[in-house]
Design a protein around this nucleic acid. Structure first.
Lengths: 372, 372
DNA sequence: AACGCGCCAGTAAACATTTACCCAAACAGC
DNA sequence: GCTGTTTGGGTAAATGTTTACTGGCGCGTT
């Protein structure tokens, strides 16, 4: 009662020992039930009372105890996010987006990274279960079996990328690899490339398979031959890209362009090519996949197929929310991809354009990609 | 009673509707108190009973409800980790380390990223408070005032980097910038560089200040002049590095070497220099700071001062644990730094060594750094 | 005027633990 | 053999919410 600053006293002068719903109720002169209902915006509360309650809440700087809430309501307002690698900048960017969207919707995020290690994956799942997450996004780009057993069994909503079991409570983000990769192949074809190689990801990953398949299909569509010796397996890391480049360099002939299953591979390739005096794009054009920020500062800046992290994050959170809150969850969410042309692609060596281009001392940014 | 596989039946055949401590107690034929004590490893429980309890736990695949636990014990076993940027690969690497160590010690991590935005910072803190984190590591490399008000007031243990208020419950990780940066300057000096520039971070950051100071001091120690026109302010981003490079290139003369306040800046510099036909290290030597993984694949691979993410993560978790569990928390934890020599540093242009070096067609990895 | 119904606030149970306190049994000392 | 002490398990309270149920009050209808 003895408030110093009567109006918006930043901290109530008389501090109750514990700051719970009872304190608010007492100050607002209502029951705790009313306070709870007010906070949860139950429409049956009298606006007059609600106002009193909100004032008391402000006065006391009160916020509800999440633990107690979760305990009784059975909902933790926690979303799990499982990613595979953290070294690949794609994932931090994805995590950031996911966190932003989740927080926007009043959820918190529990992050787990597996490093492709089944043991880590299983402790990850355990942690999620213990914290009673309301849903989990599995962004490892490849299903892992233990998940299904432990999470789906407990009816926890799940989101996968690319592929997942057909089951209630499970959604899948379907990435349209083909569209972006086709743009890439068409871009190369338009520049005059005929022999194009591909560095795959680890083929146990569904996404790696899909990207390779999309490449092969796109080549066919452009009337180009896919040469087996120029399809090399990588593992979506820089090291994998370097190793794949070694292999490629050991072939009797080089392709004039190479597409990669992801940007980290492409960065490894770029590095190794530079070491081997192969110039990009003069001797060899290079296209990555993911379009991580880093691409812009590579030397040269890397042409890449963009898969939007924000789209993925938004779709994942939407899907989970729909399942959790019971509002018409979709089985599939489409994610589009799109070519972003930078400077790692150019005319193939020896073509007229190439020579003409060479003649101009300074390369402009004149090589524009064709949309669709 | 009608178990199929009598021994290690993976899932109990008869599933109790709810799987709580009572179910375990009933199966083990003890009271819930005993179960609780067993789980929490209270030493007074009879080993015989403990064994029965553990078996029941295994049988039922039981794990305690974290919410209830947290509610009654007042401890959430949740650690907050606040970082500034997620685009800078340094932070994901740090987050990864922090998470690993935290999980190792039975804690979960709540991540918040601020993007240097005070609003985001304050919602971040709010989230941490609501989830009742047991401690928070503030890895933004610069104190933010709202933190102190809200978190310290509630006696939540905190860890800062570089600098923080002298208060119980607060520890500071003191990074020894000087040692690593001195190694860098000495390395350059030994190669024959006399004119060395520096690209700072955003100077509102304490860490940026410290790094600049360490550079200036090291220059003095090596008997070298610090030229004001070669000290340019960046902001720890690639873009900042590029802008700083532009400024540097507009000076009437260039230094023969440049050190950067962090690697992202250095990558921006590298990019811009390449665009401007300045070769690294032939025309200009470059040293970064942080030693992110990416350095290895830059063209050329970047010499950098390493600040160990693992060390930071370990120290942060140790400090927080010490505060939380009351075991002799230290006020300060030292973090060392160390030069890692790669290929972005070489002899300055025009020196004898430079010419001699040029003569050898292939550069070896022969330029070795001097330790200490 | 009386009855009924709807609206809305309050009471209390439930959520799954931890832990202070109590009490039974066992053992040792006299 | 009886009593005192110690050992260790059980009972119940407490944690801070949500929510089903209850009940009072006011208004509308017959």
């Amino acid at each position: 009662m003895a408030n110093r600053k009567t109006k918006t006293s930043r901290r109530a002068a008389q501090k109750p020992a514990r700051m719970d719903i009872h304190a608010v109720a007492k100050l607002a002169n209502v029951s705790i039930a009313t306070v709870s209902r007010t906070i949860n915006r139950v429409p049956t509360v009298n606006p007059k009372m609600a106002k009193r309650v909100w004032e008391a809440i402000r006065e006391l700087d009160y916020f509800p105890n999440t633990q107690a809430r979760a305990l009784v309501s059975g909902r933790s307002r926690l979303l799990g996010l499982i990613v595979s690698e953290i070294t690949n900048p794609f994932f931090p960017e994805l995590m950031q987006g996911f966190e932003d969207v989740a927080v926007e919707n009043g959820y918190e995020v529990l992050i787990g990274s597996t490093n492709y290690d089944p043991d880590r994956m299983s402790t990850c799942i355990r942690r999620m279960l213990e914290r009673k997450v309301d849903g989990v996004a599995v962004m490892t780009f490849g299903i892992e079996e233990p998940l299904l057993a432990q999470l789906a069994e407990r009816k926890i909503p799940l989101v996968f990328v690319d592929v997942g079991p057909e089951r209630p409570g499970i959604s899948v983000l379907k990435v349209d690899y083909h569209s972006g990769i086709r743009q890439g192949v068409q871009h190369l074809a338009a520049l005059g490339h005929r022999s194009i190689g591909f560095i795959t990801g680890p083929l146990r990953l569904h996404s790696a398979h899909s990207r390779l398949a999309a490449f092969e299909k796109s080549m066919q569509e452009c009337g180009l031959q896919v040469a087996g010796e120029w399809i090399v397996q990588g593992d979506h890391t820089m090291e994998g890209g370097m190793a794949a480049t070694d292999l490629l360099l050991s072939r009797k002939a080089l392709p004039t362009a190479v597409m990669c299953s992801n940007d980290m591979s492409a960065i490894g390739v770029l590095h190794k090519l530079h070491r081997s005096q192969v110039r990009v794009p003069d001797d060899l054009s290079l296209i990555g996949f993911d379009d991580i920020h880093l691409n812009e500062v590579m030397i040269p800046p890397l042409t890449s197929v963009q898969m939007s992290r924000t789209d993925l994050a938004r779709a994942a959170v939407s899907a989970l929310r729909a399942h959790i809150e019971g509002t018409s969850p979709q089985r599939e969410y489409g994610i589009s991809t799109q070519l972003v042309v930078r400077e790692s692609t150019g005319f193939p060596r020896g073509t007229m354009q190439h020579l003409r281009d060479k003649a101009r001392s300074q390369r402009g940014a004149g090589v524009s990609g064709l949309k669709k």
